Amino acid sequence: MNDEKLQATFNQQAASAYDSQWARLAPFRVALHLLATAILAELPADARILCVGAGTGAEILALAEKFPAWRFTAVEPSGPMLEVFRRKAQEQEQEQEQGIASRCTFHEGYLDSLPQGEPFDAATSLLVSHFILQQDERAGFFRGIRQRLCSNGILINSDLTSDTDAPHYGALLEVWMRTMAGADLGQEKLEQMRAAYRRGVAILAPEIVAGIIASGGFDTPVQFYQCGLIHGWFARAA
Protein backbone atom coordinates (compact mmCIF):
# COMPACT_ATOMS: atom_id res chain seq x y z
CA MET A 1 0.00 0.00 0.00
CA ASN A 2 1.58 3.31 -1.05
CA ASP A 3 1.69 6.45 1.09
CA GLU A 4 -1.33 8.07 -0.58
CA LYS A 5 -3.55 4.98 -0.19
CA LEU A 6 -2.38 4.46 3.38
CA GLN A 7 -3.15 8.05 4.36
CA ALA A 8 -6.55 7.86 2.67
CA THR A 9 -7.36 4.65 4.53
CA PHE A 10 -6.83 6.25 7.91
CA ASN A 11 -8.41 9.56 6.94
CA GLN A 12 -11.57 7.66 5.97
CA GLN A 13 -11.86 6.29 9.48
CA ALA A 14 -13.84 8.38 11.95
CA ALA A 15 -10.89 9.54 14.04
CA SER A 16 -13.15 10.87 16.80
CA ALA A 17 -14.71 7.41 17.21
CA TYR A 18 -11.55 5.35 16.66
CA ASP A 19 -10.69 4.80 20.33
CA SER A 20 -14.23 3.95 21.40
CA GLN A 21 -14.67 1.51 18.50
CA TRP A 22 -11.62 -0.52 19.52
CA ALA A 23 -12.15 -0.18 23.28
CA ARG A 24 -13.45 -3.73 23.64
CA LEU A 25 -10.14 -5.03 22.30
CA ALA A 26 -8.09 -2.89 24.69
CA PRO A 27 -6.48 -5.93 26.42
CA PHE A 28 -4.33 -6.42 23.29
CA ARG A 29 -3.04 -2.88 23.59
CA VAL A 30 -2.68 -2.82 27.38
CA ALA A 31 -0.55 -5.99 27.43
CA LEU A 32 1.67 -4.69 24.62
CA HIS A 33 2.18 -1.37 26.37
CA LEU A 34 2.88 -3.07 29.70
CA LEU A 35 5.69 -5.12 28.20
CA ALA A 36 7.03 -2.18 26.18
CA THR A 37 7.23 -0.16 29.39
CA ALA A 38 9.37 -2.87 30.98
CA ILE A 39 11.67 -3.05 27.96
CA LEU A 40 12.23 0.70 27.86
CA ALA A 41 12.60 1.15 31.62
CA GLU A 42 16.40 1.16 31.32
CA LEU A 43 16.40 4.39 29.30
CA PRO A 44 17.56 7.71 30.81
CA ALA A 45 15.10 9.76 32.86
CA ASP A 46 15.11 12.40 30.11
CA ALA A 47 14.86 9.98 27.17
CA ARG A 48 13.61 11.08 23.76
CA ILE A 49 11.13 8.70 22.08
CA LEU A 50 10.12 8.58 18.43
CA CYS A 51 6.66 7.15 17.71
CA VAL A 52 6.15 6.28 14.04
CA GLY A 53 2.49 5.89 13.12
CA ALA A 54 1.31 7.42 16.40
CA GLY A 55 -2.40 7.25 15.56
CA THR A 56 -4.40 8.68 18.45
CA GLY A 57 -1.38 8.46 20.75
CA ALA A 58 -2.15 5.40 22.87
CA GLU A 59 1.42 4.24 23.41
CA ILE A 60 2.72 7.74 24.03
CA LEU A 61 0.06 8.41 26.65
CA ALA A 62 0.91 5.13 28.39
CA LEU A 63 4.65 5.79 28.38
CA ALA A 64 4.31 9.47 29.31
CA GLU A 65 2.33 8.58 32.42
CA LYS A 66 4.97 6.09 33.54
CA PHE A 67 8.00 8.26 32.68
CA PRO A 68 7.16 11.90 33.53
CA ALA A 69 10.32 13.48 32.06
CA TRP A 70 10.44 11.69 28.72
CA ARG A 71 9.85 13.68 25.54
CA PHE A 72 8.05 12.32 22.51
CA THR A 73 7.84 12.97 18.78
CA ALA A 74 4.63 11.66 17.21
CA VAL A 75 4.80 11.00 13.46
CA GLU A 76 1.38 10.39 11.93
CA PRO A 77 0.19 10.94 8.31
CA SER A 78 -3.49 11.28 9.23
CA GLY A 79 -4.26 14.81 10.39
CA PRO A 80 -7.59 13.86 12.03
CA MET A 81 -5.95 11.05 14.02
CA LEU A 82 -3.12 13.32 15.14
CA GLU A 83 -5.61 15.99 16.18
CA VAL A 84 -7.42 13.49 18.42
CA PHE A 85 -4.09 12.70 20.09
CA ARG A 86 -3.25 16.39 20.49
CA ARG A 87 -6.61 17.03 22.15
CA LYS A 88 -6.23 14.07 24.53
CA ALA A 89 -2.71 15.18 25.45
CA GLN A 90 -3.90 18.72 26.16
CA GLU A 91 -6.77 17.45 28.30
CA GLN A 92 -4.42 15.30 30.37
CA GLU A 93 -2.02 18.23 30.69
CA GLN A 94 -4.76 20.18 32.44
CA GLU A 95 -5.45 17.29 34.81
CA GLN A 96 -1.92 16.21 35.75
CA GLU A 97 1.08 17.93 37.27
CA GLN A 98 3.42 16.32 34.75
CA GLY A 99 1.90 17.56 31.51
CA ILE A 100 2.00 15.47 28.35
CA ALA A 101 1.23 17.93 25.54
CA SER A 102 4.21 20.13 26.43
CA ARG A 103 6.47 17.08 26.13
CA CYS A 104 5.23 16.14 22.67
CA THR A 105 6.14 17.23 19.16
CA PHE A 106 3.31 16.54 16.70
CA HIS A 107 4.40 15.88 13.12
CA GLU A 108 1.74 15.34 10.47
CA GLY A 109 3.41 13.35 7.72
CA TYR A 110 5.77 10.45 7.25
CA LEU A 111 9.15 9.80 8.81
CA ASP A 112 11.11 11.03 5.80
CA SER A 113 9.52 14.48 6.16
CA LEU A 114 10.44 14.81 9.85
CA PRO A 115 13.23 17.41 10.23
CA GLN A 116 16.55 15.99 11.33
CA GLY A 117 17.43 16.55 14.97
CA GLU A 118 19.06 15.01 18.01
CA PRO A 119 19.02 11.18 17.90
CA PHE A 120 16.26 9.38 19.79
CA ASP A 121 16.86 6.89 22.59
CA ALA A 122 14.06 4.61 21.38
CA ALA A 123 11.35 4.31 18.76
CA THR A 124 7.99 2.58 18.57
CA SER A 125 6.22 1.34 15.45
CA LEU A 126 3.06 -0.50 16.40
CA LEU A 127 0.95 -2.14 13.68
CA VAL A 128 2.47 -0.01 10.94
CA SER A 129 5.00 -1.85 8.78
CA HIS A 130 2.59 -4.56 7.64
CA PHE A 131 0.98 -1.94 5.38
CA ILE A 132 4.22 -1.83 3.34
CA LEU A 133 3.79 -4.59 0.80
CA GLN A 134 7.28 -4.75 -0.74
CA GLN A 135 9.90 -6.31 1.51
CA ASP A 136 12.71 -4.02 0.33
CA GLU A 137 10.58 -0.96 1.06
CA ARG A 138 9.68 -2.42 4.43
CA ALA A 139 13.38 -2.86 5.23
CA GLY A 140 13.87 0.74 4.13
CA PHE A 141 11.17 1.82 6.59
CA PHE A 142 13.11 0.24 9.46
CA ARG A 143 16.35 1.67 8.10
CA GLY A 144 14.80 5.12 8.29
CA ILE A 145 13.95 4.53 11.95
CA ARG A 146 17.47 3.22 12.63
CA GLN A 147 18.96 6.40 11.18
CA ARG A 148 17.03 8.44 13.74
CA LEU A 149 18.23 6.41 16.75
CA CYS A 150 21.29 6.87 18.89
CA SER A 151 23.87 4.12 19.21
CA ASN A 152 22.27 1.10 20.89
CA GLY A 153 18.85 2.73 20.65
CA ILE A 154 15.84 0.45 21.06
CA LEU A 155 13.08 -0.26 18.54
CA ILE A 156 9.75 -1.69 19.65
CA ASN A 157 7.74 -3.02 16.72
CA SER A 158 4.51 -4.97 16.34
CA ASP A 159 2.73 -6.19 13.23
CA LEU A 160 0.08 -8.61 12.02
CA THR A 161 2.14 -11.72 11.38
CA SER A 162 1.55 -15.35 10.45
CA ASP A 163 2.66 -18.02 8.03
CA THR A 164 -0.29 -17.77 5.66
CA ASP A 165 0.80 -20.95 3.85
CA ALA A 166 0.73 -23.06 7.00
CA PRO A 167 -2.12 -25.57 7.47
CA HIS A 168 -3.21 -23.89 10.69
CA TYR A 169 -3.54 -20.37 9.27
CA GLY A 170 -7.17 -20.74 8.19
CA ALA A 171 -8.27 -21.78 11.67
CA LEU A 172 -6.24 -19.00 13.29
CA LEU A 173 -7.70 -16.42 10.93
CA GLU A 174 -11.26 -17.48 11.77
CA VAL A 175 -10.57 -17.08 15.49
CA TRP A 176 -9.02 -13.69 14.78
CA MET A 177 -12.00 -12.52 12.75
CA ARG A 178 -14.38 -13.57 15.52
CA THR A 179 -12.23 -11.57 17.90
CA MET A 180 -12.39 -8.54 15.61
CA ALA A 181 -16.17 -8.87 15.58
CA GLY A 182 -16.03 -7.83 19.23
CA ALA A 183 -15.33 -4.28 18.02
CA ASP A 184 -18.84 -4.15 16.51
CA LEU A 185 -17.45 -3.65 13.01
CA GLY A 186 -20.42 -5.24 11.28
CA GLN A 187 -20.29 -8.06 8.76
CA GLU A 188 -19.53 -5.81 5.79
CA LYS A 189 -16.48 -4.26 7.45
CA LEU A 190 -15.30 -7.66 8.64
CA GLU A 191 -15.38 -8.92 5.06
CA GLN A 192 -13.51 -5.80 3.95
CA MET A 193 -10.90 -6.54 6.60
CA ARG A 194 -10.60 -10.14 5.45
CA ALA A 195 -10.09 -8.94 1.87
CA ALA A 196 -7.52 -6.38 3.00
CA TYR A 197 -5.52 -9.14 4.66
CA ARG A 198 -5.21 -10.74 1.22
CA ARG A 199 -4.38 -7.62 -0.81
CA GLY A 200 -3.50 -4.58 1.28
CA VAL A 201 -1.59 -5.99 4.25
CA ALA A 202 1.70 -7.90 4.06
CA ILE A 203 1.09 -10.68 6.58
CA LEU A 204 4.37 -12.60 6.62
CA ALA A 205 5.77 -15.39 8.76
CA PRO A 206 7.32 -14.13 12.04
CA GLU A 207 10.85 -15.17 11.07
CA ILE A 208 10.58 -13.21 7.83
CA VAL A 209 9.45 -10.05 9.63
CA ALA A 210 12.27 -10.44 12.15
CA GLY A 211 14.72 -10.73 9.26
CA ILE A 212 13.34 -7.59 7.63
CA ILE A 213 13.77 -5.66 10.88
CA ALA A 214 17.36 -6.88 11.20
CA SER A 215 18.12 -5.93 7.60
CA GLY A 216 17.09 -2.38 8.45
CA GLY A 217 20.12 -2.02 10.72
CA PHE A 218 19.17 -3.78 13.96
CA ASP A 219 20.58 -6.64 15.99
CA THR A 220 18.60 -9.88 16.02
CA PRO A 221 15.05 -8.93 17.12
CA VAL A 222 13.67 -10.51 20.29
CA GLN A 223 10.03 -11.54 20.13
CA PHE A 224 8.39 -10.49 23.39
CA TYR A 225 4.68 -10.55 22.54
CA GLN A 226 2.10 -12.59 20.67
CA CYS A 227 -1.66 -12.30 20.77
CA GLY A 228 -3.57 -13.81 17.88
CA LEU A 229 -2.06 -12.42 14.68
CA ILE A 230 -0.16 -9.65 16.48
CA HIS A 231 3.52 -10.28 17.18
CA GLY A 232 5.87 -7.85 18.88
CA TRP A 233 9.66 -7.56 18.86
CA PHE A 234 12.31 -5.33 20.37
CA ALA A 235 15.72 -4.81 18.80
CA ARG A 236 18.75 -2.63 19.36
CA ALA A 237 20.33 -0.45 16.70
CA ALA A 238 23.29 -2.38 15.29
Rank of each mutant, 00 (worst) to 15 (best):
L40H: 02
A54W: 07
F72R: 09
L32N: 09
L40E: 01
H33T: 10
A38Q: 12
L82V: 12
E42T: 15
V30G: 06
G55Q: 09
A41M: 11
I39S: 08
I39C: 04
A41Q: 07
E76T: 12
R29D: 11
A58P: 03
L40D: 01
G53R: 13
E42A: 15
V52S: 10
C51Y: 05
L43G: 04
R48M: 10
K66G: 02
I39K: 08
A41S: 14
E42M: 14
E76Q: 10
E83W: 03
V75W: 04
F85P: 05
T73H: 07
I39G: 03
A62T: 06
M81H: 08
H33Y: 10
E76K: 12
V30Q: 13
A74Q: 12
L34N: 14
R71C: 10
I39V: 15
A31S: 13
E76G: 14
M81C: 07
A36Y: 06
T37F: 00
R86L: 09
L50A: 04
V75G: 09
C51S: 14
F85N: 07
F28G: 12
A58D: 10
A41F: 03
P80Q: 01
F28C: 02
E42V: 15
E65A: 15
E59W: 02
L34G: 14
A64P: 03
E59N: 13
V52Y: 02
F67V: 07
P27C: 01
I39Y: 00
P68F: 00
P44D: 05
I60R: 07
V52D: 08
G57K: 01
A26G: 09
G57F: 00
F67L: 03
L63W: 00
L61Y: 03
G57A: 01
E65I: 14
W70A: 02
G79R: 11
P27K: 00
L50P: 12
A69V: 02
V75R: 13
W70V: 05
T73M: 06
R86W: 03
E65G: 15
R86V: 08
K66L: 12
G79T: 11
G55C: 13
R71G: 00
G79A: 11
W70S: 05
S78E: 06
P68I: 00
P27N: 02
R71K: 07
V84T: 14
I49C: 01
E83N: 12
P27G: 06
A31L: 10
